[in-house]
Amino acid sequence: MPVRVLITTGDFNLADEIETLRASDKRIGAVCSFIGTVRDRNDGQNVSSMELEHYPGMTEKSIEAMIDEAMKRFDIFGARVVHRVGLLQPLDQVVMVAVTSSHRGESFKACEFLMDYLKTQAPFWKKEQTAEGARWVDARVTDDAALARWGIQAGNA
């Protein structure tokens, strides 16, 4: 089975990731992907850089379990999640989720499901550098609400 989860300090290339995910599978008729990037503003302050910490081992394990759940819930062929850690700047890519299926509907749903799940259950923490110093980013209740739409109670924030 191909590696479905990558945690890396380096950048990633969407086209390469999708090519690997499709891997000449002629059943695939839809590929849906999402990329999250670093903004230069958050909660009313300018952000000059961001440090991402994670829990090695649990991160990979928890995202693997999320992909297993997505495979059960949706009619998809495969999924790939890449998440960066370490020091990032505005404009940098942070996260990528890509999903393949026969038709678009299942890919769209699975991609959103995986992002909602990851936001509240994968052990990553962001620390932003602003003009007033460094601050840890607060979890959002809206992210818990997003996951609740899928029938999963998060209680993270």
Partner: peptide, 26 residues
């Protein structure tokens, strides 16, 4: 042991416990 848990979780010898704030990835 790298799975989200609550305080009722039962420990065993050699296990790994972690404490952290709400997660903020993505």
């Amino acid at each position: 042991d790298q799975v989200m848990s609550d305080e009722s979780a039962v420990l065993r010898d050699g296990c790994e416990v972690a404490f952290f704030p709400p997660v903020t990835g993505g």
